[in-house]
């Protein structure tokens, strides 16, 4: 087991209970999707996993070790986050943005080789290396953000809404890239609003709803689940079917 999350509870202040007893697992080598609507707690989950948000209770075990909420410890253990809305440093060049992803690594030669791997995934970035990241198009910025995540050579790549705000043709490209990264041996935890596409490429998936995990199965099972179809895939004939558990946990 690569990642095991047990009974995670995260609050914002006292009033907002953002994650409620969330438990799930990620197996080595898979693409795991978590789908859910706006405000379901998807990003909260990502920022908690990377150690930036402190959970009130619960346990995160990664590669057999219990993770403390300290981002640089989590990153050196082998996790990396590609955050929602990319969060590039627009005042830095593309090269500098990528090197920020490799901040904890001392092996210069290997970092250089990983740059080659990045260029094989995103050839356009080679031409853009010395350009300021703020001048790139949205699609290219998403490439840099993904590449920056890969530069730490993570065992587990956390991807938060990579398709957000991209044109449809770029959305297809980004999902293909995710599969390619997975084939190269990086495990991926993908959080998406684009349920259809992310379930289609997922080995397994969970449905997150107002802070609770309400469904799980393989990507295909959830795609065929009438309740999931009604709630997330916009299949109209199933509108009367609603996911059970308005009080999910």
């Amino acid at each position: 087991m690569l990642l095991r999350v047990e009974d995670l509870n995260v609050y914002y202040g006292e009033a907002v209970h953002a994650l409620r007893n969330v438990s799930f697992e990620v197996q080595e080598g898979e693409i795991l999707s978590i789908i859910g609507a706006n405000g379901a707690g998807k990003s909260t989950l990502m920022w908690t996993l990377i150690g930036q948000l402190k959970p009130r209770s619960g346990k995160i075990t990664f590669r057999g070790e219990v993770m403390k909420p300290v981002p640089h410890a989590v990153v050196s253990a082998g996790m990396a986050l590609v955050p929602e809305r990319r969060r590039l440093f627009p005042n830095l060049t593309v090269r500098e943005n990528l090197m920020m992803g490799a901040y904890l690594r001392g092996d210069r030669g290997a970092v250089q080789k990983d740059l080659e791997y990045i260029f094989s995934l995103f050839p356009i970035l080679k031409e853009r290396l010395n350009q300021y990241a703020g001048t790139l198009s949205g699609g290219q910025q998403q490439m840099v953000a993904t590449a920056r995540g890969l530069m730490s050579r993570p065992k587990l790549l956390l991807m938060d809404e990579p398709s957000l705000g991209l044109a449809p043709i770029l959305v297809n490209q980004i999902f293909e890239t995710i599969q390619e990264i997975s084939r190269q041996g990086t495990t991926i935890l993908l959080v998406e609003q684009n349920a259809k596409k992310s379930l289609a490429i997922a080995h397994r998936a969970y449905v997150l709803e107002v802070g609770c995990i309400v469904r799980t199965g393989t990507g295909q099972e959830l795609l065929n689940d009438p309740a999931v179809q009604a709630a997330y895939l916009g299949v109209s004939q199933h509108k009367e079917v609603i996911l059970e558990g308005k009080e999910p946990c």
Partner: peptide, 10 residues
């Protein structure tokens, strides 16, 4: 520009 993101990169 974004110290939180810097922290999350390790």
């Amino acid at each position: 520009y974004d110290s939180e993101m810097v922290s999350v990169l390790g």
